[in-house]
């Protein structure tokens, strides 16, 4: 009976929304566990294309960090996409769609120099947290 109790008391994996700061490569990697735990990503990357208009008013553009590039889309439902400057670093927060390899952005704005300087530490902390989480998921 005791073992039963300890079993039921084992803490469930925290499954409320998380927001992970990541590099593009990391975002692609961690997105494979998205069916277990919901999360959005925050990335700091350089605009590497013109912003083009797609179907349903979608704004499409490419973001790059190092050698990795990701296709991004932003829908102007609530607010307009601010003017983005090619070659400059921007901050995008959104939902990465693994099947289409597209980051669906809900917030896009220029990155602040201090944010870029300091983001690496958040990326490391998020990676560490995700390693622990993935381990606990695979144990369940």
């Amino acid at each position: 009976r005791q073992t039963q109790e300890t079993l039921t008391k084992k803490p469930a994996v925290e499954n409320s929304l998380r927001i992970l700061t990541a590099v593009i490569d990391g975002m692609r990697h961690w997105s494979q566990f998205k069916d277990k735990v919901p999360y959005l990503f925050e990335i700091f990357a350089t605009l590497d294309s013109a912003v083009t208009v797609g179907r349903h008013g979608a704004k499409n553009f490419l973001m790059r960090d190092g050698k990795e590039v990701v296709q991004c889309v932003f829908y102007e439902n609530e607010q307009e996409l601010p003017r983005l400057i090619r070659g400059q670093v921007h901050r995008c927060v959104g939902n990465y769609d693994r099947s289409t390899d597209v980051l669906v952005c809900v917030s896009v704005r220029p990155g602040l120099p201090s944010e870029l300087r300091n983001a690496q530490e958040a990326v490391k902390a998020c990676d560490a947290e995700m390693r622990v989480l993935v381990k606990s998921i695979s144990e369940v």
């Binding site: 602040l112 944010e115 300087r117 300091n118 983001a119 530490e121 490391k124 902390a125 560490a128």
Partner: peptide
């Protein structure tokens, strides 16, 4: 948040 403070917090977590 000040990004420098966020970095300190993240370092402490690591």
């Amino acid at each position: 948040a000040d990004p420098g403070e966020v970095k300190q917090h993240m370092s402490a977590l690591l």
